[in-house]
């Protein structure tokens, strides 16, 4: 499973048979309490989400229907320690077209939010967290770009008070888990 550059240490378990010992019967009750996955148990496995998914068209492994079925069965570890979670392009077709009104893309987002407990998140998100705490912007905007703005008669970029950002986010789960993501962003080294 190399489709998402091996984010998790665990390899894909989808093709291995299920053992009763890996079932977490409480997982689905955890999920129905979370914003975004409240009604995921209504899924009747029609597969509209997967057939409309642009990523599933190319990926051999990413199947939103399968992820939802695994969650219903209580296969928490298989769902959360799963590289394919990070392949969703968030185009929201699955959410708009689900005949049961499940916001499928939001269910996948809930899985990702739970998966950050492991610290296994793609590098691109780590970079964005770092950039946001450093500057307020999701990317490190190069000096050359800032200079070019002058030659294009563009006004200076709006500034971000990063101390305020720190105060705003200091009680969030992401902030508490940040040590897990590897290097602490410069903006947080204080």
């Amino acid at each position: 499973m190399t489709e998402s550059s091996n984010i998790c240490s665990q390899t894909c378990l989808e093709n291995q048979s299920i053992k009763t010992s890996e079932i977490d019967s409480q997982f689905k009750y955890e999920l129905v309490k979370l914003s975004g996955s409240e009604n995921f148990l209504k899924c009747f496995q029609c597969g509209t989400c997967t057939s409309d998914c642009p990523i599933a068209r190319y990926s051999d492994n990413y199947r939103p229907r399968t992820l939802i079925r695994m969650a219903t069965l209580g296969l928490k570890n298989r769902v959360l320690n799963n590289d394919t979670l990070w392949l969703c392009a968030a185009c929201f077709k699955c959410s708009d077209r689900c005949p049961q009104g499940i916001e499928v893309a939001s269910v996948i987002r809930v899985f990702r939010n739970l998966a950050i407990d492991t610290g296994c998140i793609p590098q691109v998100f780590k970079d964005q967290i770092g950039a946001i705490f450093d500057s307020g912007y999701a990317y490190k905007i190069p000096e050359s770009r800032i200079k070019k703005r002058e030659t294009q008669n563009l006004p200076p970029l709006p500034k971000c008070n990063t101390e305020n950002l720190y105060r705003l986010l200091k009680n969030t789960k992401m902030f508490k888990k940040i040590q897990l993501y590897g290097e602490v962003p410069n903006g947080l080294k204080q």
């Binding site: 914003s35 950050i116 946001i132 307020g136 969030t172 992401m174 902030f175």
Partner: peptide
């Protein structure tokens, strides 16, 4: 122009929905 700005929050929705809401 915006008096003060930060990322709209979208990229971090994948990591922590609450962070996206706050941003």
């Amino acid at each position: 122009e915006m008096p003060e700005f930060n990322c709209c929050g979208l990229p971090l929705d994948a990591i922590d929905h609450e962070v996206m809401l706050l941003l």
